[in-house]
């Protein structure tokens, strides 16, 4: 899978955000907020083809977590990304 490349991650105050212009007829943009870990992962994964294992590996490298926990977190995060429409179709 791949992250949507048209979204730009920005820091506003203490928040990491991405503004997603709606492509429908109505002018209602969405704003996604990411926590620090998700924002860091977004930067690492940006432009790359990756899977859940890659995300878990990244988490293990950066944080003091078991591989099992990292796997669970990676799956949960990717589900969130999928639901929010942040992955390339």
């Amino acid at each position: 899978m791949k992250l949507r490349q048209d979204l730009v991650l920005r820091k506003v105050g203490d928040d990491y955000i991405m503004v997603d212009p709606s492509q429908g007829m109505v002018d209602l943009s969405k704003v996604h907020t990411l926590n620090e870990t998700a924002a860091w992962l977004w930067e690492q994964l940006s432009g790359k083809e990756f899977d859940g294992d890659d995300v878990a590996d990244l988490l293990c490298d950066r944080y003091d977590v078991t591989h099992h926990q990292a796997n669970l977190d990676a799956i949960a995060l990717l589900e969130e990304f999928e639901k929010a429409g942040l992955l390339e179709a």
């Binding site: 506003v12 928040d15 955000i17 704003v31 907020t33």
Partner: peptide, 8 residues
């Protein structure tokens, strides 16, 4: 409002 909320 601060940060993300101010932008929104």
């Amino acid at each position: 409002k601060k940060g993300m909320e101010s932008l929104v």
